[in-house]
Design a protein around this nucleic acid. Structure first.
Lengths: 154, 154
DNA sequence: TTGCATTACATGTTATAACAGTTATTATTG
DNA sequence: CAATAATAACTGTTATAACATGTAATGCAA
């Protein structure tokens, strides 16, 4: 019996354990998803990380967030928030303002153009979500979530 | 009710759908895992991709594989196999040989040092696997695998 | 209130990722 | 069999990732 992930990676030998297989499948699935997302977003000159940051800032509203807080909320850690924000600012999608209370902080806010940008990519991402997650019923999604939670709590 | 992933990313608003939440949790979990793996491997001067390539070549044995085949078997796609192999060759972990039958191909084989390197990191990775996957029972692993398969088949 | 630690951000540097284009070799087609 | 296409690997280039270090502002303790 050859598992799906085993065939996909053209492995001639079966996995040593179910844990091995699940870990590989997890990394593989995330890579596939990430690739599809980057593909879709690149048409709008965005990376997945940039889109993630825009979503975070949209959620923060007019209050904004400082750079560190943006970094903390990212799905995947970004080692250089400053320059990621530089690029978004250069594209006019965010704006930064030195905080007057604590002048170490820089408050970051999404611009109207940034909001429009997020709106623009939404249909594409909705289609992607339907494509990849569409085959899963609620029970599967719940089981997936609880398994992923258990892994991260390790 | 605040979900685990929601709290982890400090999101004040719940996810729009379970599919959304599962997709984010998946990308997040893979990032956490990838980070832990890179951390562990960096002590041995290896990246996750390099370790993956070494495992692939170990599986191929003395027959070896050509560069393209290594690329096809990678968990995460690498856009520049040549230079990843350059680095492994410079470290003495693989060796390359121009194929005499089809001179376009270069056969890649793992060296004794490469095999030793894989052996050396094994205890560390076994510990990581226990840490992250240890909390999951067989049912959860099976459910996880089938959900991931369903996602990738989208 | 002065010195030191901490925080937040910025900057410098190196290696790698990502993309495009090149070369050498083999396969295919008229 | 010559011309063309296809394949595999290599190379060049730019932007970004990753890591370390630097700098300015604030908190805190003696």
């Amino acid at each position: 019996m050859v598992s799906r992930i085993q065939a996909e990676l053209k492995q001639n030998k079966p996995f040593r354990s179910l844990k091995d297989e699940a870990a590989v499948a997890l990394l593989r699935t995330a890579a596939v998803l990430d690739h599809a997302l980057n593909d879709a977003l690149s048409a709008h000159d965005l990376t997945v990380a940039q889109y993630n940051a825009l979503r975070i800032l949209r959620g923060a509203g007019s209050t904004g967030l400082c750079g560190r807080e943006v970094g903390e909320r990212m799905i995947a850690p970004v080692p250089d928030v400053t320059r990621m924000l530089d690029r978004l600012e250069a594209a006019g999608l965010i704006r930064r303002e030195r905080d007057t209370e604590d002048r170490r902080h820089v408050t970051v806010r999404i611009t109207a153009a940034g909001l429009r940008c997020v709106e623009d990519v939404t249909p594409t991402l909705t289609a992607l979500e339907r494509r990849f997650m569409g085959n899963l019923d609620n029970d599967q999604l719940t089981a997936l979530l609880s398994a992923l939670d258990a892994i991260r709590s390790g």
